[in-house]
């Protein structure tokens, strides 16, 4: 990505490391990049993690195992996700 002008990289790093960054994106919420810059896996503040996996897609029926497994929704406070959604 190129910007029309010079970017001061050190300032960008400092800015990215700020503790009050709060970005709600398409696939999750970044509540600051932590000290090791990995918002989800390496110490993402609240681990309010992304949504679901193992869900039946169009034209596919749900299997008993599918309905019971593979959901990572700890502390996910967005409604309509996870087990309940899979069972609809």
């Amino acid at each position: 990505m190129k910007l029309a002008g010079t970017v001061e990289t050190e300032a960008v790093v400092k800015s990215m490391e700020r503790k009050d960054l709060n970005y709600e994106g398409v696939c999750g919420v970044i509540e600051a990049f932590d000290e090791i810059h990995n918002p989800y896996g390496g110490g993402w503040k609240k681990r309010r993690i992304m949504g679901v996996g193992g869900l039946p897609m169009a034209g596919r029926k749900k299997s008993p195992l599918l309905a019971r497994s593979i959901f990572i929704r700890e502390k996910n406070d967005h409604p309509g996700l996870g087990q309940e959604a899979a069972e609809k």
Partner: peptide
């Protein structure tokens, strides 16, 4: 059944 990154 599978896990995903970034959602479906």
């Amino acid at each position: 059944a599978g896990s995903t990154v970034g959602g479906v």
